[in-house]
Amino acid sequence: MTAQERKVSFTGSTGDELSALLDLPAGPVRAYAVFAHCFTCSKDVFAAARISRALADLGIGVLRFDFTGLGTSGGDFANTNFSSNVADLLCAVDFMRQTFEAPAILIGHSLGGAAILAAASKVSEAKAVATIGAPSDAAHVTRSFQADLSHIQQNGEAEVTLAGRQFSIRKQFLDDLEGQNLKEGIGIMRKALLIFHAPRDEIVGIENAQEIFNAAKHPKSFVSLDDADHLLTRRSDANYVANVLSAWAGRYIAEVQPAEEQSETQAVTVTETGQGRFQQRVTAGSHRLLADEPV
């Protein structure tokens, strides 16, 4: 049996529809997670897709979504900033809370990791947080367009090239970054933390992992990704992260009981999800299903 991928959507922080994918295990769900992708990437970037699918194969359902103005989500990227990304994350959490179950695990890659760290203290149900190549300061992202900073400051906006694509960055984006205090948020989040970072990461230096680790309270762990690149473009690196993350998170999430140990009298519940006119959420023991009418 293989994991299944389901297209879903929800309303983001600016009122636009955000596109998402939910990677679900073929069998019982041990827990749910939300995955935040890297800066100007999308839910379909290799690392996000590979890690989410690998976690689903290990029994963890993962929601990955496009932030406002990116991928196939609605909205204008130029109107977004780090604060709106954090707000989008909380919208994703709320969608899971209302439709399936609140995420017990929060995962973020690069700037998505910084957003996860900023949002974690606001997600009471989350027990474990994992970052991959995350900066310790949200303003670190400006190094990606350092040559354009003065133009943005003087003219209020500039077209910058990131990973071969053009993006409009406005001064409000820079102003918002200046107001962030990520380390303070790390210190109060009260979650188990796992930090993945490659010592030779050329985009976000290894010193960022040390700063995050020092700012966090226990329990906290660090895993070196050896010679992996920042985007985890090698399949083996992405799979390694998924396997280690799943094993580590198992300490903080409930194990699924074998079928023979589950109560034979356990009730089946059916409730409306609010997504469309006919969609229903079916809960039978540890199994969670969606039922809907075809188009």
Rank of each mutant, 00 (worst) to 15 (best):
A3C: 12
R6Q: 15
V8F: 13
F10Y: 13
T14E: 11
E17C: 09
E17R: 15
S19L: 04
A20C: 09
G27R: 05
P28R: 14
Y32F: 15
A33N: 04
A33S: 11
A36L: 15
H37W: 00
F39E: 11
S42T: 15
S42F: 05
S42A: 12
K43I: 09
F46D: 02
F46A: 03
S52T: 06
A54D: 07
F67P: 08
T68M: 04
G69P: 01
N81H: 04
F82I: 03
A87I: 00
D94V: 03
M96Q: 08
R97E: 14
I105N: 05
I116F: 06
A118Q: 15
A119F: 03
S124T: 14
T131R: 10
S136I: 07
V141G: 04
T142G: 05
F145C: 03
D148A: 14
I152W: 01
R170S: 05
R170P: 05
Q172E: 10
F173V: 04
F173I: 01
F173T: 02
D175A: 03
L177Y: 07
G179P: 00
Q180N: 08
L182A: 05
K183R: 14
E184M: 10
K191I: 13
L193F: 11
P199V: 05
R200V: 13
D201H: 06
E202N: 08
I203G: 00
G205V: 10
I206L: 12
N208R: 08
A209K: 07
I212Y: 06
N214S: 15
H218E: 15
S221Y: 09
L225G: 03
D226H: 12
D227K: 14
A228M: 02
D229Q: 01
L232H: 02
T233G: 05
R235T: 11
S236L: 05
S236A: 15
D237K: 05
A238K: 01
N243C: 11
V244E: 13
A249E: 05
G250M: 03
R251T: 13
E261T: 00
T269V: 03
V270T: 13
T271C: 10
T271G: 10
E272P: 09
Q275Y: 12
G276E: 10
Q280C: 12
R281E: 11
A284V: 07
S286I: 01
L290Q: 06
V295A: 13
